[in-house]
Protein backbone atom coordinates (compact mmCIF):
# COMPACT_ATOMS: atom_id res chain seq x y z
CA UNK A 1 0.00 0.00 0.00
CA UNK A 2 1.34 3.45 -0.95
CA UNK A 3 2.11 6.02 1.75
CA UNK A 4 -0.01 8.76 0.20
CA UNK A 5 -2.86 6.43 -0.66
CA UNK A 6 -4.73 6.72 2.68
CA UNK A 7 -8.14 7.79 1.40
CA UNK A 8 -8.29 5.58 -1.73
CA UNK A 9 -7.16 2.56 0.28
CA UNK A 10 -10.02 3.04 2.75
CA UNK A 11 -12.61 3.49 0.02
CA UNK A 12 -11.18 0.42 -1.70
CA UNK A 13 -11.59 -1.55 1.52
CA UNK A 14 -15.17 -0.32 1.89
CA UNK A 15 -15.98 -1.45 -1.66
CA UNK A 16 -14.51 -4.90 -0.93
CA UNK A 17 -16.43 -5.26 2.34
CA UNK A 18 -19.67 -4.29 0.60
CA UNK A 19 -19.01 -6.65 -2.32
CA UNK A 20 -18.26 -9.60 -0.02
CA UNK A 21 -21.28 -8.77 2.17
CA UNK A 22 -23.51 -8.67 -0.92
CA UNK A 23 -22.08 -12.03 -2.02
CA UNK A 24 -22.83 -13.51 1.38
CA UNK A 25 -26.32 -11.99 1.49
CA UNK A 26 -27.16 -13.67 -1.84
CA UNK A 27 -25.68 -17.03 -0.78
CA UNK A 28 -27.23 -16.95 2.70
CA UNK A 29 -30.65 -15.96 1.40
CA UNK A 30 -30.86 -13.00 3.80
CA UNK A 31 -31.10 -15.09 6.96
CA UNK A 32 -29.80 -13.12 9.96
CA UNK A 33 -28.35 -16.16 11.68
CA UNK A 34 -26.09 -16.88 8.69
CA UNK A 35 -23.98 -13.82 9.57
CA UNK A 36 -22.56 -15.67 12.57
CA UNK A 37 -20.55 -17.54 9.95
CA UNK A 38 -20.62 -14.81 7.30
CA UNK A 39 -19.00 -11.97 9.26
CA UNK A 40 -15.89 -13.97 10.28
CA UNK A 41 -15.71 -15.44 6.78
CA UNK A 42 -15.67 -11.94 5.26
CA UNK A 43 -12.99 -10.81 7.72
CA UNK A 44 -10.90 -13.87 6.84
CA UNK A 45 -11.38 -13.30 3.11
CA UNK A 46 -10.25 -9.67 3.48
CA UNK A 47 -7.20 -10.76 5.43
CA UNK A 48 -6.26 -13.48 2.93
CA UNK A 49 -6.65 -11.08 -0.02
CA UNK A 50 -4.69 -8.26 1.63
CA UNK A 51 -1.90 -8.34 -0.95
CA UNK A 52 -1.91 -5.46 -3.39
CA UNK A 53 -1.04 -5.91 -7.02
CA UNK A 54 0.28 -3.22 -9.28
CA UNK A 55 -1.44 -2.70 -12.59
CA UNK A 56 -5.15 -2.46 -13.16
CA UNK A 57 -7.63 -4.94 -14.52
CA UNK A 58 -9.27 -4.02 -17.81
CA UNK A 59 -12.92 -4.64 -16.83
CA UNK A 60 -14.11 -3.75 -20.32
CA UNK A 61 -12.41 -6.89 -21.61
CA UNK A 62 -14.20 -9.08 -19.03
CA UNK A 63 -17.51 -9.75 -20.89
CA UNK A 64 -15.64 -10.85 -24.00
CA UNK A 65 -13.38 -13.08 -21.94
CA UNK A 66 -16.34 -14.56 -20.02
CA UNK A 67 -18.09 -15.36 -23.30
CA UNK A 68 -14.94 -17.01 -24.65
CA UNK A 69 -14.53 -19.08 -21.46
CA UNK A 70 -18.17 -20.15 -21.49
CA UNK A 71 -17.73 -21.49 -25.02
CA UNK A 72 -14.46 -23.24 -24.09
CA UNK A 73 -16.11 -24.80 -21.04
CA UNK A 74 -19.07 -26.17 -23.00
CA UNK A 75 -16.73 -27.61 -25.66
CA UNK A 76 -14.33 -28.92 -23.00
CA UNK A 77 -17.06 -30.64 -20.98
CA UNK A 78 -18.67 -32.17 -24.07
CA UNK A 79 -15.33 -33.42 -25.42
CA UNK A 80 -14.27 -34.93 -22.10
CA UNK A 81 -17.67 -36.64 -21.81
CA UNK A 82 -17.42 -38.09 -25.33
CA UNK A 83 -13.90 -39.41 -24.77
CA UNK A 84 -14.95 -40.84 -21.38
CA UNK A 85 -17.81 -42.78 -22.96
CA UNK A 86 -16.07 -43.59 -26.25
CA UNK A 87 -13.49 -46.19 -27.23
CA UNK A 88 -10.02 -46.15 -25.66
CA UNK A 89 -8.35 -45.25 -28.97
CA UNK A 90 -9.72 -41.68 -28.70
CA UNK A 91 -7.30 -41.27 -25.81
CA UNK A 92 -3.75 -40.23 -26.74
CA UNK A 93 -2.63 -38.37 -23.63
CA UNK A 94 0.71 -36.88 -22.68
CA UNK A 95 2.52 -33.90 -21.17
CA UNK A 96 3.25 -30.87 -23.31
CA UNK A 97 5.78 -28.16 -22.46
CA UNK A 98 4.44 -24.64 -22.89
CA UNK A 99 6.66 -21.56 -22.49
CA UNK A 100 4.59 -18.90 -20.75
CA UNK A 101 4.79 -15.35 -22.02
CA UNK A 102 2.50 -13.99 -19.31
CA UNK A 103 4.59 -12.50 -16.52
CA UNK A 104 2.11 -11.18 -13.94
CA UNK A 105 1.18 -13.47 -11.06
CA UNK A 106 -2.57 -12.90 -11.36
CA UNK A 107 -2.44 -13.49 -15.10
CA UNK A 108 -0.55 -16.75 -14.57
CA UNK A 109 -2.98 -18.04 -11.94
CA UNK A 110 -5.88 -17.28 -14.27
CA UNK A 111 -4.01 -19.04 -17.09
CA UNK A 112 -3.48 -22.16 -14.97
CA UNK A 113 -7.15 -22.24 -13.93
CA UNK A 114 -8.63 -21.54 -17.35
CA UNK A 115 -6.37 -24.04 -19.13
CA UNK A 116 -7.86 -26.85 -17.05
CA UNK A 117 -11.36 -25.90 -18.22
CA UNK A 118 -10.40 -25.74 -21.89
CA UNK A 119 -10.99 -28.74 -24.20
CA UNK A 120 -8.38 -31.46 -23.75
CA UNK A 121 -5.91 -29.57 -21.54
CA UNK A 122 -5.08 -29.65 -17.82
CA UNK A 123 -2.37 -27.54 -16.22
CA UNK A 124 -0.19 -30.05 -14.42
CA UNK A 125 2.72 -27.96 -13.12
CA UNK A 126 4.44 -24.59 -13.28
CA UNK A 127 8.25 -24.65 -13.27
CA UNK A 128 9.69 -21.16 -13.62
CA UNK A 129 8.31 -19.90 -16.92
CA UNK A 130 7.30 -23.35 -18.15
CA UNK A 131 3.73 -24.54 -17.84
CA UNK A 132 3.42 -28.33 -18.12
CA UNK A 133 0.10 -29.05 -19.77
CA UNK A 134 -1.44 -32.51 -19.72
CA UNK A 135 -3.34 -33.13 -22.95
CA UNK A 136 -6.04 -35.77 -23.54
CA UNK A 137 -5.22 -35.96 -27.24
CA UNK A 138 -1.72 -35.13 -28.42
CA UNK A 139 -3.04 -35.15 -31.98
CA UNK A 140 -4.66 -31.77 -31.39
CA UNK A 141 -2.81 -28.44 -31.48
CA UNK A 142 -2.22 -28.07 -27.73
CA UNK A 143 0.34 -25.24 -27.77
CA UNK A 144 -1.65 -23.16 -30.25
CA UNK A 145 -4.70 -23.41 -27.99
CA UNK A 146 -2.69 -22.34 -24.94
CA UNK A 147 -1.21 -19.41 -26.88
CA UNK A 148 -4.72 -18.27 -27.82
CA UNK A 149 -5.80 -18.50 -24.17
CA UNK A 150 -2.72 -16.51 -23.16
CA UNK A 151 -3.58 -13.70 -25.58
CA UNK A 152 -7.14 -13.61 -24.22
CA UNK A 153 -5.88 -13.31 -20.63
CA UNK A 154 -3.41 -10.59 -21.63
CA UNK A 155 -6.36 -8.38 -22.64
CA UNK A 156 -7.53 -8.47 -18.99
CA UNK A 157 -4.15 -7.34 -17.61
CA UNK A 158 -2.89 -4.86 -20.23
CA UNK A 159 -0.10 -3.38 -18.07
CA UNK A 160 1.36 -6.72 -16.99
CA UNK A 161 1.32 -8.04 -20.53
CA UNK A 162 3.55 -5.21 -21.70
CA UNK A 163 6.10 -5.59 -18.91
Amino acid sequence: MGVAAGAPAWSGLAVRVLALAALWAVMGGGSLGSWVVGAPAIALALYLSRRRFSGGVCWRALPGFAGFMLREMVLGGAQAALIALGPRRLLRPGLVRFDLRLRGERARVLMIDCTSLTPGTLSADLEGDVLWVHALDLGRPVSAGCRRMERRIATLFPEEAKA
Binding site: V74, G77, A80, A84, S116, G120
Partner: peptide, 11 residues
Protein backbone atom coordinates in the same frame (compact mmCIF):
# COMPACT_ATOMS: atom_id res chain seq x y z
CA UNK B 1 -8.76 -35.20 -13.49
CA UNK B 2 -9.79 -34.09 -16.99
CA UNK B 3 -13.09 -35.93 -16.62
CA UNK B 4 -13.71 -34.54 -13.13
CA UNK B 5 -12.95 -30.88 -13.84
CA UNK B 6 -14.46 -30.45 -17.27
CA UNK B 7 -17.45 -32.79 -17.50
CA UNK B 8 -18.62 -32.14 -13.94
CA UNK B 9 -18.24 -28.36 -14.19
CA UNK B 10 -20.36 -28.28 -17.32
CA UNK B 11 -22.80 -30.76 -15.74
Amino acid sequence: LHALTKADTLG
